[in-house]
């Protein structure tokens, strides 16, 4: 076992009980008024994480924290939606380093403190899974561009490749006879997508460090793309000249494209992408179906990245 090293929390930052019990009200207010979140509670394995407001809020009701942290796709911990929360207790995301290399002037390793020093912001983003469900999540993170600036990409770099950790002893689906995916999980972005201001590396949600099931300690968030692009528990980022492989695209290229931009007009071969189910809320009858938006509603910001491209071919 690695020694456990908690982040230093000054007594002044510990939430008073009264504020703790106001959490729901505050969240409701925050959802209604677009306020920055305050006074988070601590869940098992997470710590409070300070962040300044990042100025992104779709103005929609937040998906309850219980749903965000118990309904996940993280195949290293199981293929069922409840598996990651159930099976990730053995995973130890501290200490951690990300190696950044490839076509860069200054390859480097970053530990969690170095990453946090890049300036944490809270941003509320829509999240649309390729399986036609969606959430609204208050992420804490920093623009990926800030990290890329540190390593000085070469002019010849065109793409950014990402890699998830491989730890069979802590990730049950990475051992045994039936392993659902080839490991490590890999993803990729075009360099201009990676540098886009919306693209963040997230280190927390709901005012706390990321729970293991959400990709602790660092994951990618690209809100205009399907959720599987949001690679979790990242250990390596490599700048490349060629388009890097991405796990789902390699597995089923007719079902999952490299770009994976949210697009209600391009169906998955086995289901429609025209609508989505907003996770959380009141069972069958309170269930919340809504039309899916082009680029998940971020078209104003990102559509120009794809000018002149046929999005039915480059899906």
């Amino acid at each position: 076992m690695r020694p456990y090293r908690p982040l230093a929390i000054p007594a002044s930052e510990i939430t008073p009980e009264a504020s703790y019990f106001q959490r729901r009200d505050i969240l409701r207010m925050a959802a209604a008024g677009g306020l920055a979140l305050a006074a988070p509670s601590l869940a098992f394995g997470t710590e409070m994480l300070e962040a300044k407001p990042g100025g992104y809020d779709p103005g929609e009701e937040l998906t309850p924290e219980a749903d965000v942290t118990s309904f996940n796709n993280f195949y290293e911990f199981g293929t069922g939606k409840a598996d990651p929360a159930k099976n990730s207790g053995q995973f130890n995301p501290r200490p951690w380093t990300i190696q950044v290399d490839g076509m860069v002037g200054k390859p480097a390793e970053f530990d969690l403190d170095a990453l946090m020093a890049l300036g944490l912001e809270e941003r509320i983003y829509r999240m649309r899974c390729v399986e036609a469900w969606s959430m609204v999540i208050p992420w804490i993170g920093f623009p990926l561009a800030s990290l890329l600036d540190k390593v000085e990409p070469l002019g010849s770099a065109k793409y950014v490749a990402f890699e998830t950790v491989v730890r069979p002893e802590e990730m049950p689906e990475q051992r045994g006879v039936f392993q659902p995916l080839p490991w490590p999980y890999v993803e990729g972005l075009r360099l201009d997508e990676a540098r886009h201001p919306l693209t963040i590396l997230s280190m927390g949600l709901y005012g706390k460090t990321l729970p293991n099931q959400n990709g602790a300690p660092v994951r990618l968030v690209t809100p205009w793309k399907y959720g599987f692009k949001g690679i979790k528990s990242i250990v390596r980022i490599t700048l490349t000249e060629e388009q890097p492989p991405s796990t789902w695209n390699k597995l089923a290229p007719n079902e999952y494209g490299f770009y994976a931009n949210v697009n209600p007009e391009v169906d998955h071969p086995r289901w429609s992408q025209a609508t989505e189910n907003r996770v959380g809320g009141g069972g069958f009858f309170g269930s919340n179906d809504r039309p899916t938006l082009m680029f998940n509603g971020y078209g104003n910001e990102v559509a120009s990245l794809y000018d002149g491209m046929d999005l039915t071919v480059n899906f």
Partner: peptide, 16 residues
Amino acid sequence: YLGATGQLVGNPVKIF
């Protein structure tokens, strides 16, 4: 019953 009373977490319709 669980789904109708909002006790299925995540995507209750798909679970059912």
